[in-house]
Design a protein around this nucleic acid. Structure first.
Lengths: 204, 204
DNA sequence: TTATTATTGTACCATTAGGTACAATAATAA
DNA sequence: TTATTATTGTACCTAATGGTACAATAATAA
């Protein structure tokens, strides 16, 4: 395998673009889940034969991890950027609103890969299942921390439980992912967000 | 195959209890999903060899459907009973509260089988995926209808959009299922329910 | 040129998947 | 008893799974 990025390499050159191939693999894993995506379907989607995939990416699990990394660094960056909003309320609003836009983006598979990549699975995928659950916990924790600092900044009532609020928003996000996967429209989910945020804790 | 329920049958008697076997199969499908559950694991769990399973239940898909029917008729009956509460607000409260009790019941696999049975899957399970999505839509529709009649009874402001409210509650339910699957506690989810219902539309 | 390096496509491998043939067995009916 | 019926356990089947051996090929270095 060649990991250099220069275009003057020693042997026969790669006949495909790694990043494009990874993008295609991502969409297969995203829509089918880790176990639902077969190597046959992946090779078909990538337009690359199996030995080349294995030479470049390792194996199915490594391919999944590289696709997942691309997912987390790319489409899902909105989660991190939402944390930078000025107030806790704006953080929540940005998080949920951008979630809806993302979850119902027609150019992507429906739903969130971190939710549906391996919600249930056979024994063999237990580690991937745990890993994805860890990422879910990750953004919930990020929300909690953001709300903690919002409280110390007087931006959120001290009576509010940051963990509960973060879990509530993560729950709505994950529920909307399930909804999007089964075909809910952007408009319908925007109405859900509106309802979910209607009860924002008053600052008095 | 013998479908009679009398205990004076012609041939060799069944060596296992069908309902108990179905209960065990249900728990495997519930925790692993349709595709994640292998016939090997199912036979192991049931303590029954494959030819007997096939003779009595048909095939894997038929076994899943019979287990699903048992799930819908049994553990999940709380959904239907919630619709009978006196007011729309009580319906929502009962639906979400009983959901939490159910989703975190230590005697059951975590989460809701209708959510996680086949959220994503290979091509071969597409019909089961659609079927489960249909059941999700089913209880959302039931909530919507209940809210429609609540509006006509003056129990809910006419300005409320029943579809949006029903979808909001279904979304929270499905999100809590994901949370429960990844280990959220009953207490944490009860706090989520409390937040989710805090913004109930005022009747003025 | 020639040697070296690395990727390609074909054809294959072992394992597991869901599913079944069949003789043995255990019950009832005649 | 004997025949009939239906389930059992063993041992197997075919197809699909993830993964690979290997010769052919296409590039660079000497």
């Amino acid at each position: 395998m060649n990991t250099e990025k220069t275009n003057k390499q020693r042997g026969r050159p790669l006949a495909f673009n790694q990043e494009e191939a990874l993008e295609k693999a991502l969409k297969v894993f995203w829509s089918r889940g880790y176990e639902g995506a077969s190597m046959a379907e992946l090779t078909e989607a990538l337009g690359v034969n199996k030995p080349s995939i294995y030479a470049v990416f390792g194996n199915k699990e490594a391919l999944f991890h590289k696709a997942l990394a691309k997912y987390l660094a790319g489409p899902v960056a909105y989660v991190a950027s939402a944390m930078n909003e000025a107030t806790a309320r704006l953080v929540a609003e940005s998080f949920l609103t951008k979630s809806v836009e993302f979850l119902t983006n027609q150019n992507n598979p429906r739903g969130c890969m971190v939710v549906q990549g391996a919600l249930t699975c056979g024994q063999g995928a237990a580690l991937i299942q745990q890993e994805l659950a860890g990422y879910r916990k990750g953004y919930e924790d990020a929300l909690r921390q953001r709300f903690d600092s919002a409280k110390s900044q007087g931006d959120l009532p001290l009576t509010v439980n940051s963990s509960d609020l973060a879990k509530y928003l993560a729950t709505v996000h994950q529920g909307m992912s399930v909804q999007a996967t089964s075909g809910a429209t952007r408009e319908a989910l925007m109405a859900v967000v509106e309802m979910a945020l209607r009860n924002w804790p008053a600052n008095s």
